[in-house]
Design a protein around this nucleic acid. Structure first.
Lengths: 355, 355
DNA sequence: AAAAATTGTGCAATCGATTGTACAATTTTC
DNA sequence: GAAAATTGTACAATCGATTGCACAATTTTT
């Protein structure tokens, strides 16, 4: 345990130079002779000098840390998005500070505030489902801190955003279900105050309408995103003897809950009921029947978000119009909705690599 | 976009006070009258004052950020450990900075260095499998930065550590397999330079020895941790017609790979071959047959690590002897090793809640 | 009522690095 | 060889908040 870390002053004293010369030498200023620069570098190495980023950032008025706020780290979608962000950020001088909100509004506000206090240079965030107000985000934007919103978009705010074409993905999935002969298609939605979920819902409705299938209000269940909620609703459906042709869930997890309950209750999937999710979580390829879902290209979303943020931070002067990147999800058809002749197992060949 | 953020000086000018008085007032110093404190607080709120943590930390010589380094965020084990850490850290004034190494040594060194440069106040880390040297860790300890090692322990280093009793977990699992009648039990290990994996391996060997089962060298496969490696090895076993009674993998993922390959090749699990993993990843309860594995209580490990770190940071003066917390993994028996009478499906009742 | 104790506030140094400006030393120019 | 241009380095202010010490104002003690 060293009593004090070495500073540029220590180097300066050692070499009988001034601190400013040392600073310039370490920053390769052309005003310092090559010989001196060399000497300073050697002395710095000998004394095990490590620059104090706090002091640097304070003086420069800017740092090198980017904050990332996600609802949950243990979601395939988000952890891969973070990998994407890292792949762009790591080669730069920036560092990543990650915070998870557990889908909670208060935690989100607190995390964002902490980022502002720490004078982070940029923020990439995905809004919690519990968030209904946007004041905290607008505040950050007003403060002039570059911000990119990601996955959970927010049409009202004028800020860079990266997200999936949820409408299109949902539309494609619904069309697929219809093609497979399903008609009465129940929909498990997330909270409809999030555009993400209204878009998905609207895609579903549009596909039904385009196929002249009359939607009925009781087909919609909101706030069904978790496995346990999926199980609950599935049990309700069974109990009320109100068995749909298919269930399309805006979340793989609630789709999983439903799938397990129906399977356990003896229903043939996809024969009697088809089940589809959204996100292509790894488990969807492992269960049986393997689940039809939508791939969201999370790493690519993360990379785009990071690229946009760096663009904002380094090249854009002032605000300028917000940019948008939209990625279309890909339909992944698996056994849970594919009505093939007999009970032919086909999930193995569709296993997705998890590691 | 404000031109400049308000500082305590701005507040001081506004109230015709000095910056020091403002600082003291905001910190609730008893040397400042209550009336003044009140006035200062109001003015601060009006001017939308946000303390600059950079300056604060610089002056105080310490900050409020704790760094966490994990090999992978998208592992159930680590993301839940982080949740555990958060549950302890969030109620305090500390913030979390998270970094993932992707099991790579270089990335680990770089991340750790960045933490040191940013003068983080404490570090919780889990060593990458790619890490064979420990100089970078010893360096941090010598610098006097509180550090807690977690999950991947390192006996050589004198530092606080939190980890599973891998030997006991492995021993229990092997005993279970033997009780189920399996004899020729192949073992998929991780890299044996990590104590984590030697401990698991030794637990397995001890259990075999205690049951007087002769171990043979070709039963051991090292560096089989991923799904794809598990698949590879399983295919090799099948091709060489060297079918074991059971496979015990030090990773759920390689166990999964083997399970899928054997299942696909028409082997009855657990009838002809038993398969067990380690970690209780969520998918283990979802596949069929559901997989026997070991629960590691990751959240509890995370909480312990965080508590130990805070203890170090706030209460311990100097170094003192390192503390250890050891958590015993729990055997989770499921269909992949349980030889029940007929092909009775029993995985549903053992599904673990994923959300 | 003078001395002592208490209370409230300000001054100035400090944390570690950066940077505009000034100045001395050296080299170039005429 | 003196003046001008160039080069290398130092001084001091600065970023924003904290804190030891000093000092003035007020209250208490005797």
């Amino acid at each position: 345990m060293q009593p004090r870390k070495t500073t540029i002053h220590d180097i300066a004293i050692r070499l009988s130079l001034s601190a400013s010369t040392v600073s310039r030498a370490l920053n390769n200023s052309p005003r310092i002779s090559l010989k001196t620069r060399e000497k300073v570098r050697n002395a710095a190495a000998e004394l095990n000098y490590k620059p104090n980023h706090l002091a640097m950032n304070l003086r420069k008025g800017k740092g090198t840390t980017i904050g990332v706020i996600v609802p949950r780290l243990n979601r395939h979608f988000f952890s891969h998005a973070i990998s994407g962000i890292e792949s762009v950020i790591n080669p730069t001088n920036y560092n990543l500070m990650i915070c998870q909100t557990n889908e909670d509004y208060e935690t989100e506000v607190k995390g964002l505030q902490s980022f502002v206090n720490h004078r982070l240079d940029g923020i990439i965030m995905s809004i919690a489902t519990g968030t209904k107000k946007t004041g905290h985000i607008e505040y950050v934007v007003k403060e002039g801190i570059p911000l990119v919103l990601f996955d959970r978009m927010m049409g009202k705010i004028s800020v860079d955003q990266v997200f999936n074409d949820n409408f299109a993905g949902s539309y494609d999935m619904t069309k697929h279900l219809i093609e497979q002969g399903y008609r009465k298609i129940i929909y498990f939605s997330g909270p409809l105050h999030l555009e993400l979920y209204t878009d998905r819902y609207n895609g579903y409705r549009k596909a039904l309408a385009d196929s002249s299938i009359g939607f009925e209000n009781e087909w919609l269940f909101t706030d069904v995103l978790t496995q346990s909620r999926g199980e609950e609703v599935a049990k309700i459906l069974i109990k009320s003897d109100n068995i749909p042709d298919a269930i399309f869930a805006a979340s793989d997890f609630s789709a999983l809950g439903a799938l397990l309950v129906f399977k356990n209750a003896g229903y043939a999937i996809p024969g009697q009921i088809g089940i589809a999710g959204f996100a292509n979580e790894p488990f969807t390829g492992l269960i049986s029947p393997a689940m039809t879902t939508l791939e969201q290209y999370s790493e690519e979303l993360g990379r785009s978000a990071a690229r946009m943020l760096i663009e904002r931070m380094e090249f854009t002067t002032g605000l300028g119009a917000p940019n948008f990147v939209v990625v279309k999800p890909k339909l992944i058809v698996r056994g849970s909705t594919l009505r093939v002749p007999a009970g032919k197992e086909r999930n193995e060949e569709l296993i997705s690599e998890t590691v």
